[in-house]
């Protein structure tokens, strides 16, 4: 795998994460538990879509095959998506959405933190912008997880159930492959496996405050960031997201 191939793959992974979780978060629009949450969730989704434009835009540019961010977002099928499985998991109740967000934000903030020092200036510049937004997302999702974990017996049970349901999708964040090795070697991006300790410490602190217990089973569901096996959920998400572009391919919007 060449450096550019590895870089394109790495960028697509970042952009697909933000695109897919951003899509999920945007499903809440107008349906959340309080008005402030409607505003906050729309804001997160908006940041995610903005970051998608940057990551996928750069991926298309480096790929040099004439695909821009929109082409990549709207004209690939499920097997070409490289997002973490966690990002495509359905919203469930508000607690599960916030738990998913927290588990993702914690990884995202650590990963972006490393990208700040990327040897590729374009990558570092996007990470610079994104990491500021994500620091805020993490602060908010962590606070919400703590509040709901610690709130009432019902909310505690719902949050523990959300954690139990989503935890098998955490391990995939730390799996490394050939592309990751190329990027790490070139100083462009960190080796995912090297982030686990910091992640566990961060997540552990928050879950502790939330009076939630980390599941013992460390089995990792995988196949998202390699594209080898997504969940059944992704196809439905894409059917909705890509329908207009696919139905009217000759249109500009």
């Amino acid at each position: 795998m060449t450096r550019d191939e590895a870089l394109v793959q790495g960028l697509v992974r970042l952009g697909d994460n933000t695109l897919i979780i951003g899509h999920r978060v945007s499903e809440w629009c107008g349906h959340s538990p309080v008005l402030e949450e409607d505003i906050a969730l729309a804001n997160i989704a908006l940041d995610m879509i903005g970051q998608t434009q940057l990551w996928l835009g750069l991926a298309g540019e480096i790929e040099g095959a004439g695909r821009d961010a929109d082409t990549l977002a709207f004209h690939r099928d499920a097997w070409d998506f490289r997002n973490l499985l966690l990002c495509e998991m359905p919203n469930g109740d508000f607690g599960r959405t916030m738990m998913r967000q927290f588990l993702f934000d914690a990884w995202h903030s650590i990963y972006l933190g490393r990208l700040l020092k990327s040897s590729d200036a374009r990558v570092a510049a996007i990470a610079e912008k994104a990491s500021k937004e994500v620091a805020y997302h993490l602060e908010r999702s962590a606070d919400t997880v703590v509040a709901l974990g610690d709130g009432t017996p019902e909310s505690h049970d719902r949050m523990q159930a959300a954690l139990d349901y989503l935890y098998p999708y955490v391990g995939e964040m730390f799996l490394s492959d050939e592309g990751d090795a190329v990027l790490a070697e070139a100083g462009i991006a960190p080796d995912p496996a090297s982030l686990r300790e910091e992640y566990d410490a961060l997540v552990g602190r928050v879950l502790d405050k939330a009076t939630l217990s980390v599941p013992e089973n460390r089995y990792a569901q995988k196949g998202g960031r390699t594209g080898t096996m997504h969940t059944e959920h992704l196809g439905h998400l894409l059917a909705q997201m890509q329908w207009l572009q696919r139905a009217y391919p000759d249109a500009t919007w």
Binding site: L19, H23, S26, E27, C29, A45, I49, T52, Q53, A69, D70, A73, F74, Q240, M241, W243, L244, Q245, Y248, A251, W253
Partner: peptide
């Protein structure tokens, strides 16, 4: 929102 035709 979930069916908007472009990212922008």
């Amino acid at each position: 929102i979930t069916r908007a035709p472009t990212l922008e």
